[in-house]
Structure formats: structure tokens, C-alpha cells
């Protein structure tokens, strides 16, 4: 069953000439751990707000576990972790959780039990009664997540949940999310950190300028169309060797003082060039490098700055 099904979503902010989303369609299956990627201004936050029910699409449809997301039952299935630290700083972690838990429909012993579990999941049980204003940035991020997972949502939406946190807190967040996903929660994860996506997300949805650019398994998306790279370490004048390779029709560039990056769709075809360089005593070492998701992402969305 699809946890999330978006069809031809369009949304234009009042007063804006360009649509923030222009006919986006995708499906996230139940139990999936998916990343929603896009540069600044791509339409990610708009899409997240549409899914969370904070905005209503101009046209198109959005279903959460088969139900329109405007319905109470559909929204009850959603846990939302906003990019902001949406916490009451003068309240304790327990009080924050208790408040949001009640809004989610929890109460009594169940609320206390879920509060305890959520605090343990983000490793804040020992500081549960401290006021949030005394928390470090990482602790606040973890509490932000704890609120999102408190009511055992079937679909967890996370909008850049690890911004500005240290490695330890980030690891704690990863572990909590992986545990949630392992327990059956579908996760939609928005981030700019590609290594996080490569570590956790099995599926990737890439959008830009309000359009869907790609969707598929993470490894597949990273490798599609991307040129593999050969890294050469040379002993001669690297710039002259690059010029020679380019003149011979290769995609070569300097990648350090004595290093050259050689990109190609067909690595086998490059071996002859390597052999020639080796014979002339110019090649001291070489290795191949798998294309990264970040490279693929830049390839898809371009290297132009987004403000």
C-alpha cells in the first residue's frame, strides 16, 4: 500500500507569479525510508507543508495511506518534525511532550508511556524534567524529533532534522529514525546532507523549480547517467598531460598538483590511454571512484547558486 501518493500537485503562493509546485507526482510505499531532495527554493518545504496539511494544493491530489490528507484520520497518521526547533523553551521536555501528545489524542497512562519511550529513543530520559532553554542545540533537535515520533505516526515527515547538530546528536537521531523505520514507520526525510541520504534512505525523490526530476532507489539514482571517474597520479607535467588527453578527445581535468580526473561512460575504453601513459613512465598510480549522490544531484539540479 502507498503511504503517500501525490498526483499532479500544483501550488502557487498568493502574490507569486511562479508556481512553487507545478504538477508533481510521486508515490512512497509503506515502510519506505525516502529522501526528498532539492536545492533551496526547489519546492521541498511547500511539498512538506502540503503533505502535513498546512497548505492546500491548488490542484492535484494527495493521499496518506489511501485517504485524502485533509481528513482527520489521514493527518492523525502523520508525525511532523519541522526544520525550526518548534519547542516551548520555558517548559520541560516532559511538558512539551505532554502538551503535543494531548493534541495528538494521547492521554493518561498511554501518554506517560509514550513520553517515556520517546525520551528514551532520543536519549533525553535523564534530562526530561529540565527546561528546554537549558538544553544544548543537539538536545533540542532530539526533542524536536521525540515530539514527532511521540504518537507512533505511520508516516514521519522530517524537514532537515539535523541542521546544526554535533556528530553525537546526529548519530542519536539517525539511530532513532532507523529504529522507527524498522518498526514499520514510513519516513520522508528532507535534507541537504547527501551522506545522510546515502546512509539511511532507500528511496530518493528529487525536485527542482517545482518539478519532479527523479525518483527511485538511492543507489540507482546516484549511478544513472553519471560518468565514472578515473583518478590518475602522474609524475610529469600534469597540465601538459591533461592538454594532451583533451586533444585526444578525453574528458580530463586537473584534480590536484599531480593528479588528473578522467571521466568516462566507458572505463574500458580509457585503459589504452592509461597504458600509453604508463609506457612513457608518466603514470605512477590510478584508481576508480564510484559517483556520489551529491554529484548526481548537482548534475540533475545544476551548479548554479540558489539564494
Amino acid at each position: 500500500m502507498a503511504a503517500l501518493e501525490a498526483s499532479e500537485l500544483r501550488y502557487r503562493y498568493p502574490g507569486s507569479t511562479e508556481p512553487a509546485l507545478d504538477g508533481v507526482s510521486f508515490t512512497i510505499e509503506e515502510g519506505q525510508f525516502a529522501a526528498l531532495l532539492g536545492p533551496n527554493g526547489a519546492g521541498k518545504t511547500t511539498l512538506v507543508q502540503l503533505i502535513a496539511g498546512l497548505l492546500r494544493a491548488d490542484t492535484g491530489s494527495l493521499a496518506v495511506f489511501g485517504r485524502a490528507n485533509s481528513l482527520k484520520a489521514a493527518r492523525r497518521a502523520i508525525g511532523f518534525c519541522p526544520q525550526e526547533l518548534a519547542l516551548y523553551s520555558t517548559l520541560s521536555a516532559t511538558e512539551n511532550l505532554s502538551f503535543f501528545g494531548q493534541l495528538a489524542g494521547l492521554g493518561g497512562e498511554r501518554l506517560r508511556e509514550r513520553t517515556r519511550i520517546a525520551l528514551e529513543a532520543v536519549r533525553l530520559a535523564d534530562q526530561a524534567d529540565e527546561r528546554v532553554e537549558r538544553y544544548s542545540g543537539g538536545m533540542k533537535r532530539r526533542l524536536n524529533l521525540a515530539i514527532a515520533i511521540l504518537a507512533e505516526p505511520k508516516l514521519l515527515i522530517l524537514d532537515e532534522p539535523t541542521v546544526g547538530v554535533d556528530a553525537q546528536s546526529r548519530l542519536a537521531i539517525f539511530e532513532a529514525l532507523e529504529a522507527q523505520n524498522a518498526a514499520g514507520t514510513t519516513v520522508l526525510y528532507t535534507t541537504h546532507y547527501m551522506e545522510e541520504v546515502e546512509r539511511m534512505c532507500r528511496e530518493v525523490v528529487v525536485i527542482d523549480h517545482g518539478h519532479l526530476l527523479a525518483q527511485g532507489p538511492t543507489a540507482e539514482i546516484a549511478s544513472i547517467g553519471a560518468n565514472a571517474a578515473l583518478h590518475l597520479e602522474v609524475s610529469g607535467a600534469a597540465a601538459e598531460i591533461v592538454a594532451e588527453l583533451v586533444a585526444a578527445g578525453h574528458d580530463a581535468r586537473l584534480d590536484g598538483e599531480q593528479e588528473i580526473a578522467l571521466h568516462s561512460q566507458d572505463l574500458a575504453a580509457e585503459l589504452a590511454s592509461l597504458e600509453a601513459l604508463a609506457r612513457r613512465g608518466l603514470l605512477t598510480a590510478f584508481h576508480t571512484r564510484r559517483p556520489t549522490l551529491e554529484e548526481r544531484f548537482l548534475e540533475l539540479t545544476g551548479e548554479e547558486l540558489r539564494d
Binding site: G53, R75, A86
Partner: peptide
């Protein structure tokens, strides 16, 4: 509004 707690509240079906 600025800290996002209002947004978070409005996500709940209340």
C-alpha cells in the same frame, strides 16, 4: 509563529 510551534500545533487535526 517564528519558532514554529504554532505550525506544529496546526499540523494536528484539531
Amino acid at each position: 509563529r517564528t519558532e514554529g510551534t504554532l505550525t506544529r500545533i496546526l499540523v494536528y487535526p484539531i
